[in-house]
């Protein structure tokens, strides 16, 4: 029998079997990427606000630095992070190498430039007079920044979704700092790579289908959201 057809068949059996080991991998992929995105947003958003709202020398340089970093090959970053987390590295004593924490931190670093760039662009697209509007209505400087961030919310959300997308789909960082330990640090991409090498195409294809579904799903949501403009209105209602 054709190993590819066999693989596809096995893949669908797995997907519909509800196998806990299989879905454990799916869960880890989503969870690690989710935490990584949240971390990156936590430190990336304030940085984007500084770049987007302040005028300073070297601003273009900083912006092009983050833009360039988006294209960083994931294996190269994975290697750098491996060196940082390894026993002899600066964070070696923490013993994070090959733990979920290492993957989450590593992927957070990976998606940070992407989130910063998109968020900065979104903030810069807001009418700068909006800051004066918030101020004249009585906002302090920090409240003014928050008002601008709210106006940029569409772009900010988009940036975070793009970051999540990249984290879920990348292999280099997860493999090099996570090690792909089965049941502990393996995720969709590391398992696709592992099972393909082992010749277990059924599992590899099953994981790939799930990964594609996630990525397509995310993009579908973005598209629908743009269409329905559901991201355009937000904020508390008076009641």
């Amino acid at each position: 029998m054709n190993p590819i057809i066999d693989g596809v068949q096995k893949a669908f059996q797995l997907i519909f079997s509800g196998d806990p080991t299989f879905y454990g991998v799916v869960y880890r992929s989503l969870f690690f990427s989710g935490v990584a995105t949240i971390l990156a947003a936590l430190w990336g958003t304030p940085i984007a606000m500084l770049i987007g709202l302040r005028e300073f020398r070297g601003k273009t340089l900083v912006k092009s630095f983050f833009n360039t970093m988006i294209g960083m090959p994931t294996v190269a970053l994975g290697l750098i992070l491996y060196l940082v987390f390894s026993k002899a590295g600066p964070l070696g004593p923490l013993g994070l190498l090959y733990t979920p924490a290492a993957i989450m931190l590593g992927e957070a670093v990976l998606v940070t430039p992407l989130i910063i760039s998109i968020t900065t662009n979104a903030i810069e697209a807001v009418d700068p007079e909006m800051m004066n509007l918030a101020r004249t209505l009585g906002a302090s400087e920090s409240q003014t920044s928050i008002a601008i961030l709210k106006e940029a919310m569409n772009g900010v959300i988009l940036g975070n979704i793009a970051g999540f997308n990249r984290a879920v789909a990348e292999l280099g960082v997860a493999l090099l700092v996570g090690g792909g330990i089965l049941g502990a640090t393996d995720v969709l991409t590391t398992d696709i790579s592992l099972y393909t090498q082992r010749g277990d195409l059924g599992l590899a294809i099953a994981f790939a289908i799930i990964l594609l579904l996630i990525v397509f799903g995310i993009n579908l949501i973005i598209m629908l959201a743009k269409k329905a403009k559901i991201l355009l209105t937000f904020g508390r209602s008076p009641q």
Binding site: D127, E129, M130, N132, L133, A134, R135, T136, L137, G138, A139, S140, Q143, A147, K150, E151, M153, L232, T233, F234, G235, R236, S237, P238
Partner: peptide
């Protein structure tokens, strides 16, 4: 700034409801 309020030449609305727009300054206060 709490003692003066300006209405700008180019009208700007926060992307939210009319209520939230008008309530903005009161919330700041």
């Amino acid at each position: 700034r709490l003692q003066s309020a300006m209405v700008f030449q180019r009208t700007m609305m926060f992307s939210t409801s009319v209520y939230n727009n008008v309530a903005y300054g009161l919330r700041m206060r």
